[in-house]
Design a protein around this nucleic acid. Structure first.
Lengths: 242, 242
DNA sequence: CGAATAGTGTCTCTGAGACATTATAGC
DNA sequence: GCTATAATGTCTCAGAGACACTATTCG
């Protein structure tokens, strides 16, 4: 059955009649809400034969070989279904597959992570936002979703050190102090204003709009993301403390 | 058949009787041979009903739900089978899945990439090394393996700018000029000797052995990787030209 | 000695960190 | 004027780039 031939790499692939792992896609969806980094989670159904009934989980599910042309389309579909949003930023995170992660049998999930602005979309009723505090989620998740989420948080933090990713968490128009605040929320440490501004402005990723944000103090210049702006990679990280 | 319920994320998962994609693992194995970056490829079988008969491909194959505990173990097994080597460096690269990449049906592959030293292992007869020239392979590959390889090359080059990954391509003992040469081969551009040495030596990743490499000129200090040394991440990239 | 490569030193430049200073709004 | 926040400027420091210079072997 699960013999050598197959494992050696297609040598007898004319015969495709052997057990296949389950194939799923899960999406880690981040947003900034109320000055916190938050992640979108759904509650699993309650059925008798359900794995992890009622547990919290990442939005996701089985690949649909009819509806989904490829993995990215599948992830985009799940994102759209849960949030109404179409791909501001969607990146593949990695895959997790083993005999034990799903009680129903050998399964492999393709994990993606998405960044969306606070204003975006209309949630489905089964989905809720949960804050990431101290770089972690308090709640336990179904399957190995806690591992996947931890990996997503680490990847996000890492990349925020040397990329413009937080721009995708911003509303259409924002000020430089707004953007710096989002960097600081994700990294959970303060950044130097002066160095921050130099870095962002020299990256040619945002452009000023002819408006200012007014408040009880000096107004701030409003900016927007430049058209078709891909993420920018800086040649240095922010120097992590110590 | 491929209806909404399933796609919505396990909601009816009691019913697992629907088409599953094929699940494979492929490994991009790099080594330095004869002053070139090379990749290990196998030739596909010639059978009538084989996809891409006789074409070159990355080593890999179906996940074996009996033999393979998880994806990484599956990748390590394939690496071992083809090269006799056990994991000097093995990292997940990403996954590729679509309806069209394999003529036998919807399939998803989990791609890994491995770095091994030149001396290592005994190849199986169906595997051969092919040089990467100008950052690309001349040969066309089966499936979407050309895309996967291109992605692996890009990831490798990227990481070499700010990590110690090339250390895993080195023999047990090597000199600093040797190591610099490997960096230069992968990046395909010369590096400054002085800056290179400062960076590597301050990274605390290698240690001198009490030997010198002798030649027709001044001998060079031999080094080895420190025990259990994980890859080092530098806070700056080498400044790319222009 | 010369050739060749190993290894070090010097000078400049860029960008981050720290922190002071100036600017502009509301009250 | 006072307060609060936006925006800029100054000084220092680390590390890269460029390149000169010294060191050590063989022949």
């Amino acid at each position: 059955m699960a013999g050598e031939d197959r494992a050696e790499g297609f040598e007898k692939s004319g015969d495709l009649d052997f057990p296949r792992p389950l194939t799923t896609v899960d999406v880690v969806i981040f947003s900034i809400r109320g000055d916190q980094l938050q992640v979108l989670l759904v509650r699993r159904p309650a059925g008798e034969d359900e794995p992890f009934p009622q547990a919290l989980a990442l939005p996701g599910g089985f690949v649909d070989v009819v509806k989904d042309r490829d993995l990215a389309a599948c992830a985009a579909r799940k994102l759209k279904e849960k949030t109404g949003v179409t791909a501001p930023y969607l990146e593949q995170l990695g895959s997790w597959g083993s005999a034990s992660r799903d009680p129903r049998g050998w399964s492999a999930t393709h994990a993606y992570f998405a960044l969306i602005p606070e204003e975006a979309g209309a949630l489905t009723p089964d989905a809720r936002w949960f804050p990431i505090q101290g770089g972690r989620l308090k709640e336990k998740l179904a399957f190995d979703h806690s591992d996947i989420l931890a990996s997503a948080i680490q990847r996000l933090r890492n990349k925020v050190e040397y990329t413009s990713l937080p721009a995708y968490l911003m509303p259409a128009e924002f000020t430089l102090p707004d953007l710096q605040r989002v960097y600081e929320i994700v990294l959970d440490r303060p950044l130097e204003k002066s160095a921050f501004r130099t870095r962002i402005l020299s990256a040619d990723m945002i452009e000023p709009v002819a408006k200012m944000r007014r408040g009880p103090n000096r107004p701030a210049q409003l900016y927007r993301l430049k058209k078709n702006s891909k993420p920018v990679y800086f040649v240095r990280t922010f120097n992590p403390p110590e």
